[in-house]
Design a protein around this nucleic acid. Sequence first.
DNA 1: TGTCCGACTAAAT
DNA 2: ATTTAGTCGGACA
Length: 170
Amino acid sequence: MSNICVLLPVAQDLCLSVSFSDLTISRIRYQHVCSTKSDVIENDSIFAKKIINELESYFNRSDSQFSVLCDLSAGTEFQQKVWQALLEIPVGETRSYGTLAKQLKTSARAVGNACRQNLFPVIVPCHRVVSASGMGGYAGDTSVKQQGEIDYMQIKHWLLAHEKTIDRKK
DNA sequence: TGTCCGACTAAAT
DNA sequence: ATTTAGTCGGACA
């Protein structure tokens, strides 16, 4: 298994750590850049370059779509179903937990649970799922964090704002 | 099994 | 603005 790190535009010290093997992404997590010096990009395989390229495109430009595959099978059957549904939400749009629940014939809470378990943030766009009355959570968190900790809600806000920028350019 | 807890929500206070 | 009741998947005993 290999691992690469892609810097996030959200904050100076944040990056996305992507684990992969066999042309498939197995896991993505948020990380402080400084926390692991060993996570420097040292892998120059074609696939690694593709991942980096697609993520950077997404962060910098408009209509970028991801073609790299994620190993959804790491989740339960239900989680896979939800994650698949997330992949079908277009860039710049959002869905509420409730409407997704209706679509999948389950409950809003259950959808939230599956989102919380998302192993592939950004690529599987759980940030496009919001609550009927507000923001919902992100990466398991629901409120703003203290200094020093990763502020996941800030990241969710940033991603959504970024995708709106994309819409405006169209 | 049974119990409990969520990134929820609509309805009733 | 808050509270309540309904919801269902997953973790754990």
